[in-house]
């Protein structure tokens, strides 16, 4: 069931759109912000509220790489794997992250602290290689920087 706060936020979005289904992405963002990910139950709840089929909501939810359809950790690491970061050595960062966190892409640490994901170009190519953790951008990275950065997230 959607919470009162989720319903209120989605209702607010509905005032800005000419048809209910146009709020689908906003609704997914709202629920994900509250619950970290979108469960089957959330898909069905959003579908009911926006008068859409669950399949239609799921087709949208699964299209976008930053809507998570399985549980994720408390913090999301997005490692840029695009061309400038490739040239500047992001693969070394990836290797180091695997070693520190003992997880691969798409996996979550056992303590649910981090989920590691590759991400397309973060748009900071003059400071490659780069990654984001939640809303924070880290640039000009060396593998040796990683442990200290990860320490900030609990």
């Amino acid at each position: 069931m959607l919470s009162a706060i989720e319903i209120e936020k989605i209702s607010h979005e509905l005032r800005h759109v000419p048809v209910k289904k146009a709020a689908c992405i906003e609704a997914l963002k709202i629920v994900q912000q509250e619950r970290r990910w979108i469960s089957d139950e959330s898909v069905a709840d959003i579908a009911a509220m926006l008068e859409m089929s669950t399949a239609e909501v799921d087709s949208v939810a699964t299209f976008y790489n930053l809507i998570f359809r399985q549980p994720v950790g408390r913090h999301i690491i997005l490692l840029c794997d695009s061309i400038s970061c490739y040239v500047m050595g992001y693969t070394v960062l990836r290797q180091r992250l695997h070693e520190i966190l003992l997880i691969g892409y798409g996996q979550t640490t056992a303590d649910e602290r981090f989920t590691l994901l590759p991400n397309a170009c973060l748009g900071t190519c003059d400071h490659a290689p780069a990654l984001m953790i939640d809303d924070d951008l880290y640039r000009d990275l060396q593998p040796a920087d990683l442990e200290q950065i990860l320490e900030k997230y609990h």
Binding site: S82, I83, S84, A120, C121, G123, T124, C125, D126
Partner: peptide, 8 residues
């Protein structure tokens, strides 16, 4: 939606 790799 600047997302062309190499573009900043």
């Amino acid at each position: 939606d600047e997302m062309e790799p190499g573009t900043f």
